[in-house]
Design a protein around this nucleic acid. Structure first.
Length: 636
RNA sequence: GCCGCCGUAGCAUAGUCUGGUUUUAUGCAGCGGUUUCGUAAACCGCAGAUCGUGGGUUCAAAUCCCACCGGCGGCUCCA
């Protein structure tokens, strides 16, 4: 038989016999590769190893230890889980069972939800199946045959999926007694699944639509090596240790009170100290960049929201009240207020851009089930600014905002940033020309800022394109932070204009941008990022001062007074407790420096300072102040 | 909002399944005293809880049932 030629990802060519399969190609490339092979990617599509190869295709062998390999493994694990569940509860109907970021899940239709004990049972059953080391066999048939099989089994959800598939060959995967509609690919045998663990359960709507039935989802994860699984579980534990709700309580930063209401944050003195430092820093940075500060009310007459469109499109998320037969709405956004300020004067093109900044506290009604700690709340403060400019100025202004964001990330130690540009969605306002110009402006701004970014076609909001920034924290978790959005809608609705050099009125373009997004959420992220061990400039309490004995209390007081005068945040602890006790307490409060004074220090006018790692160092008072002031300025 | 789990002193837990000393226990924190101490917990004592709220079942409810409030994990949502 004649050879056919395939292209490998590195553009080298591979010749195999006509009619051969993916596994043959793998063997041809190398014995080791064939052993490790799990699946084959043909022209970007994952296929099983038994996939018949054709000429002029680009192939990639998916092996263990690759990201795609993990996906294949996890998808296989989800099948094994479904098999286990079917054996334990034969009447359960199957939903879908894909691999996801950290593992896999499978959705089942079952009256009673799964319990923790059920998870253990399923795990045991899965172990049996894996031990059996059965082959994943692919079976192909036409749609009619497939439907017949599914109808016999009564798999109504699978039939729904089948109906959406194109006519042609429908594939099932079979392992032992279990068979499931599935395009694959899978591992060769169930025995490939070596390290797995079921993690949790939860309800999930069929096809993610809340109008549909609620299915029972089981989450799990799988790895090729036991070591990787352990690593994963350790990382999970690490994340739990950093939970901002736990640390927030321990460090007395904030609370949420049942009587006050869900989603409303009470900032305690220490939390406020932290928050104030962030705000102070942010204010300075805005001043440097030519923003003007404004202050606006929390409550507006409903007319404002009718003009802005929120009354029609955002009403379910807003708080309304009626006084003297007049309807008012609490602001969910600051934009209308800023536009009103802009509109209180006529503006020349020479004045543009005009940038208004406000720490604007907004209230949004969020469904009870979505609230959580500081991450999702009903009342929060945005570091919100609106830039009014001409379409021509857009690119330069966006560039400045990008620089601003990156600077802020760096200061807080977020060194990895992922950027996404979202373009015109199907439903959108504004002309095609406006959109094109704006999208080009955003794109060019990103390129000229030498930033790598992804384009998310059609994912913009209806009123304009946007750029989103995601950062990675100290344990590599991703958080969506900043957003820069162009808005054609509100300037139109509020008729925001400027006078151009042709002395005619022109529509202003508005940019919404927030760097932290919400201060509440940002602080939540910071708590987890730093594990509560904030750098000196942010620490609610910077120094804890204690004396070795009563005789040295006066000196401790002197030191404290001096540090307060120098603008530091201190805590003087003169309680009748032992030195060790107070140090332990300070350490648990994650205070950056604990200052101990006694005979030696009093004699020499010095301080002995213990840092968070337990290291001690002696300074003269002046020396210490100088060094710590530097540390605060450098924000290390 | 939906599915599930949970709610015991300021905090962290035990007791709840299988109702039964007048319902409670432990540690930390608090308060009173003693100790004045050199880098992660000195000692003794005291006080502190309508067991989330309301209703029901029962001779008897922290425990069983219902509703509500709140928290957590998911889903959905986050123009």
């Amino acid at each position: 038989m004649a050879d056919i030629e395939l292209t490998l990802p590195d553009n080298s060519k591979l010749k195999v016999k006509k009619g051969s399969k993916g596994i043959d190609a793998a063997k041809k490339i190398g014995k080791k590769l064939a052993e490790d092979a799990l699946a084959i990617e043909v022209d970007g599509k994952l296929q099983g190893l038994d996939f018949k190869l054709e000429e002029n295709t680009k192939i990639k062998i998916i092996t263990k230890n690759s990201k795609d390999g993990l996906e294949v493994l996890r998808h296989s694990a989800s099948h094994v889980m479904a098999e286990a569940v079917k054996e334990l509860w034969p009447n359960v109907k199957l939903g879908i069972g894909p691999a996801i970021e950290d593992g896999f899940y499978y959705d089942f239709f079952k009256k009673e939800p799964f319990t923790q004990e059920d998870l253990k049972k399923i795990e045991e059953k899965m172990k049996e199946i894996i031990k059996g080391n059965k082959e994943f066999k692919k079976k192909e048939m036409n749609k009619g045959e497939a439907r017949k099989i599914l109808q016999e089994k009564g798999e109504k959800f699978k039939i729904e999926l089948l109906n959406e598939l194109e006519d042609g060959k429908i594939s099932f995967f079979e392992s032992g007694k279990f068979m499931d509609l599935c395009k694959g690919p899978h591992a060769k045998k169930t025995g490939e699944i070596k390290a797995f663990k079921l993690l949790s359960t939860g309800g999930a709507y069929w096809k993610g639509d809340e109008k549909n039935e609620m299915l029972q989802r089981v989450y799990g994860t799988a790895f090729f090596k036991e070591k990787d699984l352990e690593e994963f579980l350790k990382q999970k534990e690490e994340a739990e240790k950093r939970d901002h709700r736990k640390i927030g309580k321990e460090l007395d930063l904030f609370s949420i009170n049942e009587i006050v209401g869900s989603g409303f944050i009470l900032w305690h003195p220490k939390g406020t100290a932290l928050r104030n430092q962030i705000m102070k820093f942010d204010e300075q940075e805005h001043l440097k960049r030519g923003y003007e500060f404004v202050t606006t009310p929390h409550l507006f007459k409903a007319d404002t929201w009718k003009t802005s469109g929120h009354y029609n499109y955002y009403k379910e998320n807003m708080y309304f009240l009626e006084i003297d037969k007049q309807e008012y709405g609490v602001k969910p956004m600051n934009c209308p207020a800023h536009i009103m300020i802009y509109k209180s004067n006529q503006h020349s093109y020479r004045e543009l851009p005009i940038k208004y900044f406000e720490f604007g506290t907004v209230y949004r009604y969020e469904k009870s089930g979505v609230l959580g700690g500081l991450f999702r709340v009903r009342g929060f403060t945005q570091d919100d600014a609106h830039i009014f400019c001409s379409l021509e100025q857009l690119k330069e202004e966006i560039k400045k905002v990008i620089e601003f964001c990156l600077h802020v990330f760096k200061v807080f130690g977020f060194n990895e940033v992922a950027v996404k540009l979202s373009t015109k969605p199907e439903k959108a306002i504004g002309t095609k020309e406006q959109w094109d110009k704006a999208e080009t402006a955003l794109k060019t701004a990103l390129e000229e800022s030498k930033i790598e970014f992804e384009v998310d076609e059609g994912e913009g909001v209806f009123y304009g394109p946007k750029i989103d920034f995601k950062v990675k924290d100290s344990i590599k978790r991703e958080w969506q932070l900043s957003t820069i959005q162009v808005d054609f809608n509100l300037p139109e609705r509020f008729d925001a204009t400027y006078i151009g050099n042709d002395s005619k009125k022109h529509r202003a373009v508005m940019i919404h941008r927030a760097i932290f997004g919400s201060l509440e959420r940002f602080i939540g992220i910071l708590i987890e990022h730093f594990e509560g061990k904030f750098p000196l400039w942010l620490s609610p309490v910077q120094f804890k001062i204690l004396a070795v004995g009563e005789k040295f209390e006066e000196y401790a007081e002197q030191v404290n007074k001096k540090l307060l005068e120098e603008g530091f945040r201190t805590e003087l602890d003169l309680r009748a407790e032992t030195v060790s006790y107070k140090i332990r307490e300070g350490q648990m409060q994650k205070i950056p420096y604990i200052i101990v004074v006694g005979e030696r220090e009093k004699q020499n006018n010095t301080l002995t300072v213990r840092d968070r790692t337990g290291q001690q160092k002696t300074f003269s008072l002046e020396e210490f102040i100088k060094e710590k002031k530097k540390e605060v300025i450098e924000k290390k």
